[in-house]
Amino acid sequence: MCVKRQHKWISSSLNVEKQRMRGGFPVLSSIVANPTRDVTVMSSEQKVYDVVLKQAALVDRELRSRDALDLDIKPDIAVPGTLSLLGEAYDRCGEVCAEYAKTFYLGTLLMTPEKRRAIWAIYVWCRRTDELVDGPNASHITATALDRWESRLEDLFSGCPFDMLDAALSNTVAKFPIDIQPFKDMIEGMRMDLRKSRYENFDELYLYCYYVAGTVGLISVPVMGIAPESKATTETVYNSALALGIANQLTNILRDVGEDARKGRVYLPQDELAQAGLSDEDIFVGKVTDKWRNFMKKQIKRARTFFDEAERGVAELSPASRWPVWASLLLYRQILDEIEANDYNNFTKRAYVSKAKKWLALPFAYAMSMMHLKTPSSLAKA
């Protein structure tokens, strides 16, 4: 029974204007010595990797004791009068997902009902969190408001949801081995958006990308499930899920350079800009030059490297979960192609994948989901 406060299961009136979802590697550099101070500084990759290890261990404890790695879902607790409300809560989450993530929603329909509903609940919480700093009321959001949102998160993990949409997620985290840390880390990413508009190097940007997008991968793996025939370690699958989140967010950043600049934000490594002979002023002016093209080529190459890493893990997911993830991966990769097609003008042109290309990608994503260990990269090499 909830004792912290009186909670109501009420339909939340989400501010649902169109928005961009914010939407890793295994550790590339772990610990570096700081020559100016006699201390050891942990890199962002190591910090994130420690979270990955914790999440993988949690899933291992739940799943490795059985022959199959796919999740044996706990049944809903039959409290009189609540199951119908819970069903309504999940249905509402599905409606939001269908309206604002149409392609992904179609993919979720191939999942089992339990997994489908859980992914809807996760999507809606992530969307609501993102809209706190990127939605119509973003100008009124303070650090205190985010603290309250985190307190509310802790309540729903304790089985005390505040409203109907929280109830769906509360039920989901009770049924799957999902830890609270990635959720808290996503909220931390929102805090970064309130206080930070520049990133000195990729190490700083990597941590931000993990907070706002890599976390989604860590949260989703226990629901997606790992294929029973997979020989990959849980840690490997988590690393690939993290890589997909990082790749998607880097793609968002490269697509939205002009839009972010008009808000006074530059989500690009400052040291790499300087090495390319560029500055914030060049971005604010918004002129495509050879320097900018060369800089963008390197940024796009990095994003594609993360997508390549993500491919390995998608192939290890349970068969019913692969299609929506493949669809997301392939469509986001195409945004990078569109940036190139626009001659790297992401100042005044927004790269987007046409509806025709989206529909063409779906059957290919489905075909890939049916071929367990074959990825686009491996097929290209065959």
Rank of each mutant, 00 (worst) to 15 (best):
A167S: 13
A168F: 02
A168P: 06
L169K: 02
S170Y: 03
S170E: 07
N171A: 11
N171H: 12
T172Q: 00
T172P: 05
A174Q: 12
F176M: 04
F176C: 04
P177H: 06
I178A: 10
D179M: 09
D179W: 04
D179C: 08
Q181N: 08
Q181S: 09
K184R: 15
K184F: 09
M186I: 13
M186W: 01
G189L: 01
G189F: 00
R191L: 07
D193M: 14
R195K: 15
K196C: 14
K196M: 14
S197P: 02
R198F: 11
E200H: 08
E200S: 10
N201Y: 08
E204P: 06
Y206R: 14
L207D: 09
L207S: 09
C209T: 10
Y211G: 03
V212P: 02
V212G: 02
G214W: 01
T215P: 05
T215F: 00
V216G: 02
L218N: 07
S220I: 03
M224K: 03
A227K: 07
A227W: 08
E229N: 12
T233P: 05
T234G: 06
E235V: 13
Y238K: 08
Y238G: 06
S240W: 04
L242S: 09
L242D: 06
G245W: 00
Q249F: 08
R255H: 06
D256Y: 13
